[in-house]
Design a protein around this nucleic acid. Structure first.
Lengths: 160, 160
DNA sequence: TAGGTAAAGGTCAGGGATGGTCAAACCATG
DNA sequence: CATGGTTTGACCATCCCTGACCTTTACCTA
């Protein structure tokens, strides 16, 4: 069930944790380690280490080239709210919504239960209506839920 | 008479018991095992593994795709969930929803943040559509959020 | 300094492998 | 024989992975 891309993603994330969010790799070396085409690495980076998910990827070609991966933190609930309200427009696809929720959870702005709750709410099955209205309702819900939860003090012993 | 769908249902449920409520399958493999069309599997999932019955189904397409089936324990805090999913019909007014959330919060089944989150979600302003659809969406949201949150273990130092 | 070369990484289209959807056919039951 | 749950097949959407070809950079050599 777990694809090569998933494995590479996990590998990179583990490395990132050990290096406190900043990492430089050689594309070819990594590809060799997983016995795959070098472009596979790009695929993984493009699909899993996107800006939405809080990563920045830079690179340099040529001799002594590299790929640098940086994980950004949202910097606490206050900033998160500010950041997110800019990003969410009048319409949001399920994928985007889930990426945002995932990121907030990883950053400790949401408890696992809060994240589960929000994931359930933005699921297309829950919204019952067709596009394009569904995406509008999702955007509305997401914004309101975020404001509600992020401006409410976390329970003791939770997020920080 | 037991239909093929019934057999597949039984099979999946047995598997779920052996794997403590979480299971990943290949649609094609399962279809092959029962010598039926792959879409038969979807039919079984749609008709028998619904949210109302306490199941969640996720999936991924493409290479190394899968279908994941999760069984929620309906015997959460005070067996509230079992009671509630019966009690919430296809349509719920904002007033009822809020009363329900309030009640759960007072009973300690929901943290203040979780309650705030849910209140925001069932607010008529958030749902954007007119009656009677609004009340339907609210019912759907409410049930799904409750299943999600109540079958997720509470954080330490929270609810009890 | 100019030019060449080797050594990175980037792009993109395409093929294969899954699962999803939907309408029509099928069939058991009252 | 009407109804509603089953079952199927045709067609669609998504995801993974690769290989051929392109661009950029460092460094060496004349």
């Amino acid at each position: 069930m777990t694809s090569l891309s998933d494995e590479i993603e996990e590998f990179i994330k583990r490395m990132l944790e050990e290096t406190s969010g900043r990492l430089e790799i050689r594309r070819q070396r990594l590809a060799a380690r997983f016995s795959c085409a070098p472009s596979q690495i790009n695929y993984v980076l493009e699909t899993r280490f996107t800006t939405d998910r809080g990563y920045a990827v830079e690179s340099r070609r040529g001799g002594s080239g590299f790929i640098r991966i940086i994980k950004f933190s949202l910097g606490g609930p206050g900033r998160a709210l500010e950041f997110l309200s800019d990003r969410i427009g009048d319409s949001v696809a399920q994928r985007e919504a889930q990426a945002l929720i995932e990121r907030l959870a990883e950053d400790g702005c949401l408890s696992p239960r809060e994240a589960a709750l929000m994931r359930a709410a933005v699921d297309r099955e829950a919204l019952l209506v067709d596009l394009p209205y569904r995406d509008r309702i999702r955007a509305s819900l997401l914004k309101r839920m975020l404001v509600a939860v992020l401006s409410c003090p976390p329970a003791r012993g939770e997020q920080e």
